[in-house]
Design a protein around this nucleic acid. Sequence first.
DNA 1: GCCAACGTTGGC
DNA 2: GCCAACGTTGGC
Length: 162
Amino acid sequence: MRYITRVNYWLFKSEPREFSFDDLLKRPGKSEPWTGIRNYQARNFIRDAMQVGDKVLFYHSSTALPAVVGIAEIISKPYPDPLQFDDKSGYFDKGSPTDNPRWLAIDIKAVKKLKKEVTFEQLKKEPTLQTMRLVQRGNRLSVLPVTKDEFQTIVKLAGEEV
DNA sequence: GCCAACGTTGGC
DNA sequence: GCCAACGTTGGC
C-alpha cells in the first residue's frame, strides 16, 4: 500500500501572557493540548485538514511586539476538546452534545524557537507575504492556514535554514 | 484603552 | 431568515 503524506502548514496565535512559546518548551515532552478553540472556521480547519506532522508557526498576539516566535508540530489527530464538557471551564459549552461534540482539539509539540522573532510589522512589509491571511484586514481566526512558501519565507526571515 | 472588523445571538 | 445588538479579537 502506498502511503501518501501531505504536510500542511498553519499559524497558531497565542497570547504570551496566557501561554507563550517558552511555556510550551517547558512542558513535559514540549507538548501541549491546543484546546479552547471556539470558532467554527477554526474548528473546521482542525476537523478537515490537520494531521500529524503538520508544521505550525507559533505566533504571539496581543503583545507589545506581535511576532512569530517558534515552530511547532501537530502530534495528534483531532479529538473532542474536553473543556467543552467541563462546567468549571471558561470554555464550557452547554450546547455541545456529548455524542457529537462541537469543539475539537489537537496536541502540538515545540520543534524549535526561532533565532530571531519575525514581527507582524516585518510580515506586513514582506512583498511575498501580502496575500497571507494573517496580514489581511480584520482577520481574527486563532488558527490559520499558511502556504509552504509563506512558511519558508518566514523561517528564512528568522535567520533559520529552510 | 480605543476602535475596526466580524462572528454570534435572539427578537421579530 | 433578516438584522440590530452585543461580544470578542487584536493591532495600535
